[in-house]
Write a protein that binds this DNA or RNA. Structure first.
Lengths: 158, 158
DNA sequence: CCGTATCCACAACGATACTG
DNA sequence: CAGTATCGTTGTGGATACGG
């Protein structure tokens, strides 16, 4: 098993390139390909479960909402669960799977980037730790517990 | 200043919805709208600086590469810097700005999600802490230093 | 209430050819 | 080497109307 290690500040030789099918981020973007998929997932994180909730809160049209829900369900990020309240007809609700909720760090990271760099008036959303109320951030940290800055990264492929 | 607090597990009333222009994540996705923009940024993180490097390593066509570089430069995520080696003609290179490199947590989060959920053979990319060699992960952590799990989140808008 | 079917407009992207 | 111009194909998404 060969392994190449590259410092972030360095440059790569062409032979170090990877094609699209070897890049995990490209694969992630193949599943959550478009803006509307992110919006649907955002609302799932916020607790939306029913079709109309997704359509209304994302601002997407119903056809687009239906397509994204179908795709995300097919990709295993959402699951469709039939449930029945006594005396009511059957309903279906969409819930995040573990695969779907595992995207939360990416979504929070995008949110905080938008807060910082795009929205003029500062943060319009806050994510807080339920236990202590402190603000939550997506950050890079190594397994030894060190916070990792941009200049302290090393990239390795194998 | 009104503020609503929602537990992740709960549901939102329709009036709690925000429109697209109030969502920081949607704004982030307006800037990094498409897959190719992420790929270009990925290569910038990996150290690419020249036009041909971006085109070759992302696998994008030259016109698309040129468009993305122009857009990302215009949005302030990359900066174009002319430089001149003695005796050579002027070249231009693209470098990440702070705004651009601030997207690193989101990119690493997408990479590790792809590693875990999409790629069959396990991780094909590793990000490590240069100081200690330990693997780096994008994770949610509150300002008191607690690691924050999926069920310990509270969302607040104001 | 929960979607689907159809249609249309525009954005994204690759291929090819060409310029400073 | 570093792009631009043009073209054709596919993807994305809204509008409208309709069905279970």
């Amino acid at each position: 098993m060969t392994e190449t290690t590259i410092q972030m500040t360095g440059t790569l030789e062409p032979r170090d390139s990877w094609t699209a099918d070897a890049c995990p981020m490209a694969h992630a973007l193949d599943v959550v390909r478009n803006r509307s998929a992110f919006l649907v997932l955002r609302e799932a994180f916020y607790g939306a479960t029913r079709f109309e909730e997704f359509a209304a809160r994302t601002g997407l049209s119903e056809p687009v909402t239906a397509t994204r829900l179908r795709e995300l369900t097919g990709a295993g990020l959402l699951e469709r669960e039939p449930y029945q309240e006594p005396g009511q007809r059957t309903r279906r609700l969409y819930r995040l799977t573990e695969k779907g909720s595992d995207l939360l760090p990416a979504i929070v990271a995008l949110m905080q980037w938008g807060d910082k760099w795009v929205l003029p008036g500062g943060a319009r959303v806050e994510v807080r730790h339920h236990d202590c109320g402190a603000a939550v951030r997506a950050e890079l940290r190594c397994e030894h517990g060190h916070a990792v800055g941009r200049d302290e990264l090393e990239l390795a492929r194998r």
